[in-house]
Measured scan of single mutants.
Amino acid sequence: MTYKLILNGKTLKGETTTEAVDAATAEKVFKQYANDNGSDGEWTYDDATKTFTVTE
């Protein structure tokens, strides 16, 4: 399945997607991506749209 990440950071904004077997796997990928790019904030997940959002 395709999962989407929306970044609403102070310095990093945008979207990216990943293919993953489940939401937990996608979350690990996205959290590593956000960490690698210095983005940290409040995470939410919408199962209906398969979208993670991180807001700083």
Rank of each mutant, 00 (worst) to 15 (best):
D36H: 08
L7V: 08
K10Q: 10
Y33P: 00
E56V: 12
L7M: 12
K10P: 11
V29A: 07
N8H: 10
V54P: 00
D36T: 09
T44M: 07
A34Q: 03
M1S: 12
S39T: 14
L12T: 11
K10E: 08
K31T: 04
F52G: 00
T51Q: 03
A26K: 00
T25M: 10
D22A: 03
E15A: 08
G14A: 13
T53E: 04
T49E: 05
T11I: 11
T55H: 08
D47W: 08
A23D: 04
E42N: 09
A20K: 02
T44Y: 10
T25F: 06
K4R: 13
Y45K: 00
T49M: 05
V54M: 10
T16Q: 09
A23W: 13
Y33N: 01
M1C: 14
Y45D: 00
D46V: 04
W43A: 01
D46A: 03
T49H: 05
G41Y: 13
G41T: 05
K10C: 14
G41V: 05
K31I: 07
T11H: 13
T51I: 04
G14W: 15
A34P: 02
F52L: 01
T25D: 07
E15D: 05
F52P: 00
E42L: 13
A24C: 13
D22N: 08
D40I: 14
L7S: 04
L12A: 10
K13Y: 11
Q32W: 05
T16H: 14
V29D: 04
E42S: 09
D36A: 12
N37R: 14
E27L: 15
I6S: 03
D47G: 07
T53R: 06
S39H: 15
A48Q: 10
D40V: 14
E56Y: 14
I6P: 01
V54F: 12
V21M: 12
T11P: 05
T17N: 05
E19R: 13
D46K: 03
T17I: 07
E42Q: 10
E19N: 12
I6V: 10
G41I: 04
T44V: 09
V54L: 13
Q32R: 11
L5K: 01
N35M: 15
T18H: 06
K10W: 10
T44G: 06
D47R: 07
K13I: 10
K50E: 01
E27K: 10
K50L: 10
L12E: 08
D47L: 06
E19G: 04
K31W: 07
G14K: 14
T49R: 06
Y3S: 02
T18V: 14
T55S: 08
T44R: 08
V21F: 12
T18L: 11
E19T: 14
T2I: 14
T53K: 04
W43H: 01
F30K: 00
Q32G: 06
V54K: 02
Y3Q: 02
N8Q: 11
T49I: 05
G41E: 03
Q32K: 13
T16M: 15
G14C: 15
K31S: 04
E56S: 11
A23E: 06
A23K: 13
V29R: 08
F52Q: 00
D47K: 07
K28T: 07
T51D: 00
E15K: 06
T53C: 06
G9Q: 05
K28R: 13
A34I: 12
T44L: 07
K28L: 12
G14S: 13
V21L: 12
Y45G: 00
L7D: 01
L5F: 05
V54H: 03
T16R: 12
G38T: 05
G9I: 10
F30S: 00
T49G: 03
Y45V: 01
T53I: 07
Q32H: 06
E56G: 08
A26R: 00
D40E: 12
K10D: 07
S39Y: 15
D36K: 10
A24D: 08
G41H: 06
T2E: 07
D46I: 03
T51L: 03
D40P: 07
E56T: 09
Y33S: 01
V21S: 11
T18W: 06
T17S: 10
F30N: 00
K13G: 06
D46F: 04
V21T: 10
T2D: 04
T55W: 11
T51S: 04
W43R: 00
D22F: 02
E27C: 14
A26D: 00
D22L: 03
A26H: 00
L12M: 13
K10V: 13
W43G: 00
S39L: 15
T17A: 06
S39W: 15
K28C: 08
F52A: 00
K13A: 07
T18D: 02
T55V: 08
I6R: 05
E27F: 15
T11E: 09
M1F: 14
D36N: 09
A48L: 11
K10S: 11
T49F: 04
